[in-house]
Amino acid sequence: NITNLCPFDEVFNATRFASVYAWNRKRISNCVADYSVLYNLAPFFTFKCYGVSPTKLNDLCFTNVYADSFVIRGDEVRQIAPGQTGNIADYNYKLPDDFTGCVIAWNSNKLDSKVSGNYNYLYRLFRKSNLKPFERDISTEIYQAGNKPCNGVAGFNCYFPLRSYSFRPTYGVGHQPYRVVVLSFELLHAPATVCGPKKST
């Protein structure tokens, strides 16, 4: 009989979030998941669920729940959905087409922007091929755009693959930082360890 609440607040209220290319994953298990708490945590810009209804979450049980978190800019949030393409979905964080879970995003301009520009958040701009779903690539190998090998040196047709967002508070919403948490629900042929409040007794 599990009584402890799932530590969603640790994920959502973390002081620092990860850069999207090096997104963070927390496995959540053996706890009571009260998803209604999430609705009250922040004024969400996005709370979209796929393959599951957000209002039914509190009635369900899962084997595992994974919470992935990272920062992107406002106009990239739409890429965090099944079947999307674009720089983020292709080279940084890719959801599977049959994704079961929820994408939660909110504006973090007050936390993640600086007047002089916050350069701490990076994204991958160049990659030889698209990522597979939930693949994480943290390599910093020089990207070869031409025929000549780069031998690890940046220059003509040889690019450092990561680029930094420079978040400034005066930017338009599309270029402001957004914190994203992706909850993916895993149903294996194994005992369910993460249940809503109704199912945990």
Results as ranks from 00 to 15, higher is better:
N1D: 11
N1A: 11
I2H: 13
I2V: 14
C6T: 06
F8G: 05
F8Q: 04
N13Y: 10
A14D: 09
F17D: 02
Y21T: 05
A22R: 11
W23F: 08
R25I: 01
K26M: 12
S29Q: 13
C31P: 06
V32I: 15
A33P: 12
V37Q: 13
N40W: 09
L41F: 15
L41Y: 15
L41S: 14
A42W: 12
T46M: 13
T46Y: 14
F47V: 15
C49N: 02
V52G: 06
V52T: 11
S53T: 12
K56W: 07
K56H: 12
L60E: 10
L60Q: 12
C61F: 07
F62R: 07
F62H: 07
N64P: 13
V65P: 03
Y66G: 03
A67W: 09
A67L: 12
S69R: 06
R73N: 06
G74A: 04
D75E: 10
R78H: 10
Q84T: 12
T85A: 11
N87A: 14
Y93L: 02
L95N: 01
P96F: 03
D98P: 09
D98G: 09
T100I: 14
I104R: 02
I104L: 11
A105T: 12
W106A: 04
S108T: 13
D112F: 03
V115W: 12
V115F: 08
G117T: 03
Y119I: 07
Y119S: 07
Y119E: 10
Y121D: 00
Y123P: 00
Y123A: 13
F126L: 06
F126D: 00
L131P: 00
K132A: 12
P133R: 04
F134P: 02
F134D: 06
R136A: 05
R136F: 05
R136P: 03
I138F: 07
I138N: 11
T140D: 11
E141V: 10
Y143L: 05
A145F: 03
G146N: 03
N147I: 06
K148V: 14
P149R: 10
N151A: 11
A154S: 13
A154R: 15
G155S: 06
N157W: 02
Y159I: 00
F160H: 15
L162N: 03
S164W: 06
Y165E: 00
S166I: 03
F167I: 00
V173L: 15
V180N: 01
V180Y: 01
V180I: 11
V182M: 01
L183S: 01
S184W: 12
L187P: 09
H189P: 13
V194A: 12
C195W: 07
C195Q: 08
P197I: 15
T201M: 14
